[in-house]
């Protein structure tokens, strides 16, 4: 549900990227060699979507933070609710545990994003 609000943002971002990419020289090259418009758009999308992946990785952290509030307000059982309860009870082991879990989730998400990014952009290498 939280992701829905972000979807609008991503749509705009892809749209903006697409407009920007249309002006790139390699898109002109694609047209100059006689590619049909469909393939030209595929070339452009490949470039326009890549930065979105990075943004998404960063956003996962925010999504997590947002979950705490949403779950508390609507009384939905979940990690977010658990944290709020734990803080109110000064239940330190639970606070630390949930923070740890959340941290791991964000780190794992970022790792996955990095791997996907490297497979999209050949200029990214591990060293």
């Amino acid at each position: 549900m939280l992701a829905v609000t972000q979807a609008a943002f991503y749509t705009r971002m892809v749209r903006g990227n697409m407009l920007e990419v249309q002006g790139e020289d390699y898109i002109r090259t694609a047209r100059a060699k006689g590619l049909p418009e469909r393939s030209v758009i595929r070339h452009a999308l490949r470039s326009a979507l890549t930065p979105v992946v990075t943004m998404y990785g960063l956003d996962l952290g925010i999504l997590m933070g947002g979950a705490i509030i949403t779950e508390a307000i609507f009384n939905i059982p979940g990690i977010g609710g658990l944290v709020v309860d734990a803080i109110q009870d000064a239940n330190f082991p639970v606070i630390m545990g949930t923070t740890l879990v959340a941290s791991f989730a964000v780190i794992a998400a970022n790792l996955v994003v990095d791997i996907i990014y490297a497979s999209l952009d050949p200029r990214v290498t591990y060293s």
Binding site: E24, Y26, R28, R46, L120
Partner: peptide, 11 residues
């Protein structure tokens, strides 16, 4: 074209 650095798709 002029700029061979920009004229090929990097991906």
């Amino acid at each position: 074209f002029q700029d061979p650095f920009a004229c090929l798709h990097p991906f």
